[in-house]
Amino acid sequence: MKMKSIVSLLLICLVFSLGLAQAQNEKNSCKSITFLNATPDSFECMKNKLQDYGIDVPPGNEGELSGKGVTGSFEWDGKSILTITIEKKPFGVSCEIVDKMLIRFVDECNGV
């Protein structure tokens, strides 16, 4: 009887741990942020700033970005609309902080 109780307890812990990990992964992504003023110059500037910060950004108008515990995607229309989605971020960093950093990069590149 004791062995069945221990096995049952271990199974419950395993299921709970997997559920908790899934919930944390879902919380780890952020809503997309869209910039309406991303000119070609500011888009290139922002990509360079992200790379200087340690975030890998591929060439082109869309792709995956990653580095420093962050993964996400970006898409730029080639004129002015840039959308960035963060799919994974460090556990202790809020989406608001990520958004503020992205806004700062864009503002710096727009001369604000």
Score class of each variant (00 low, 15 high):
Ile81Trp: 05
Leu36Phe: 09
Ala21Met: 10
Ile55His: 03
Asn25His: 12
Phe74Tyr: 12
Asn25Leu: 13
Cys45Tyr: 08
Ser17His: 13
Ser66Cys: 04
Met46Asn: 00
Pro58Trp: 11
Leu50Lys: 02
Ile33Pro: 00
Glu75Gly: 05
Pro40Thr: 09
Cys30Phe: 05
Ile86Asn: 00
Ile86Met: 03
Gly92Thr: 13
Lys89Met: 05
Pro90Trp: 14
Glu64Leu: 13
Phe43Cys: 01
Val15Gly: 01
Ser66Glu: 12
Lys68Cys: 03
Gly78Pro: 06
Val93Pro: 01
Lys49Arg: 14
Lys47Gln: 10
Val57Trp: 04
Cys13Trp: 11
Ile86His: 01
Gly19Lys: 13
Gln24Trp: 12
Asn37Phe: 12
Thr71Ala: 02
Asp77Leu: 08
Phe91Leu: 08
Leu20Val: 14
Asn61Phe: 07
Thr71Met: 05
Ser66Val: 09
Ser94Tyr: 07
Cys30Ser: 04
Ile84Arg: 00
Lys49Pro: 00
Gly78Thr: 11
Asn61Ile: 08
Asp77Thr: 08
Gln22Leu: 14
Cys95Asp: 04
Phe91Tyr: 10
Asn48Pro: 01
Phe16Pro: 01
Asp56Ile: 10
Ser32Cys: 04
Ile81Val: 15
Gly67Asn: 08
Leu18Tyr: 12
Leu50Cys: 01
Thr39Val: 11
Ser17Met: 10
Lys47Arg: 14
Leu20Asn: 05
Gly72Pro: 03
Val93Ile: 15
Ala21Ser: 11
Ile33Ala: 00
Gly60Val: 12
Asn37Gly: 03
Glu87Leu: 12
Pro90Glu: 11
Lys89Val: 02
Gln51Pro: 00
Leu36Asp: 08
Ala38Arg: 01
Cys13Glu: 03
Ser29Glu: 06
Phe16Gln: 06
Tyr53Glu: 07
Leu36Gly: 01
Cys13Ser: 09
Gln24Glu: 09
Phe74Glu: 01
Ser80Pro: 02
Thr34Ile: 13
Ile81Leu: 09
Ser66Arg: 15
Phe16Tyr: 14
Asp56Glu: 14
Thr85Ser: 04
Gly92Ala: 10
Asp41Met: 10
Met46Tyr: 02
Glu75Lys: 13
Ile33Leu: 06
Asp77His: 12
Lys49Glu: 06
Ile33His: 02
Thr34Pro: 00
Leu36Gln: 13
Pro58Lys: 14
Gly69Pro: 05
Gly69Asp: 07
Tyr53Phe: 14
Pro58Phe: 08
Cys95Leu: 07
Ala21Phe: 14
Leu65Ser: 01
Gln51His: 07
Asp77Val: 09
Leu50Met: 15
Thr34Met: 10
Val15Met: 09
Gly60Glu: 07
Lys79His: 10
